[in-house]
């Protein structure tokens, strides 16, 4: 039986855009550590993230709209993370996968950034060390719900969140301390000087 397709349909543009966006999230796997292997496991045959329309992992930020930060991010890596986040086109979302990405986890040390949400905006947090693949899939489903519920065609929902949302950097850092790393605006490809 031929499918009867009407000549035109009426719909609001926002839900239409949300429907499209939610069902074809292209993740950018920013996999740094153990959680990255669980991310691989999520993509492998047993858990198969393809069932939820999010299997198109692209390693180029220009093609992605969902960044999955899987694993701890350390001082040397954070400028890279910020740069990649800035390179992703709007609309974009970020999932912080695992205890380390969300809060530093067990690594409360000099080198590890205590939660990526201090420096980039994060939409979903997945607890666990590492989270099971099922948890990651659940977070993607939740993100889809969130997009469907709050997304707009113009991306106006992002504009309202001008304020920094995560915890603020420590205020008690001594002034004379020479600190390290960098600024994503200035970080260059080859050298620092």
């Amino acid at each position: 039986m031929a499918l009867a397709i009407p000549d035109f349909m009426l719909a609001k543009l926002d839900p239409l855009a949300n429907w499209v966006r939610a069902n074809s999230l292209w993740p950018m796997p920013f996999a740094t550590a153990c959680c990255g292997i669980e991310l691989m496991a999520t993509g492998a045959s047993k858990h198969d993230i393809a069932r939820f329309g999010a299997e198109v992992m692209r390693f180029s930020p220009r093609q992605c709209d969902l960044m999955i930060v899987a694993g701890r991010v350390v001082m040397k890596m954070l400028p890279v993370l910020q740069r990649i986040w800035m390179q992703m086109p709007e609309p974009k979302w970020c999932i912080s996968m695992g205890a380390c990405a969300s809060s530093g986890g067990v690594f409360d040390t000099y080198a590890v950034v205590q939660g990526v949400d201090r420096f980039i905006p994060v939409d979903m947090y997945v607890p666990g060390c590492p989270p099971r693949p099922e948890q990651l899939i659940q977070s993607i489903l939740d993100l889809q719900d969130k997009i469907r519920a709050s997304g707009t065609l113009q991306g106006t929902e992002f504009e309202q969140r001008i304020e920094h949302q995560g915890p603020l950097p420590n205020a008690d850092v001594p002034a004379d301390v020479v600190t390290a790393p960098g600024d994503y605006k200035k970080s260059r490809r080859v050298s620092l000087n």
Binding site: A33, R72, V74, K76, V80, V106, F107, A111, V112
Partner: peptide
């Protein structure tokens, strides 16, 4: 060094059973 997280420094802080994690 893009994943240097200070493992060895933590090893000086946690006891023999804790450090296994």
């Amino acid at each position: 060094g893009f994943l240097h997280s200070g493992f060895e420094k933590l090893g000086e802080d946690l006891d023999f059973n804790q450090y296994v994690t």
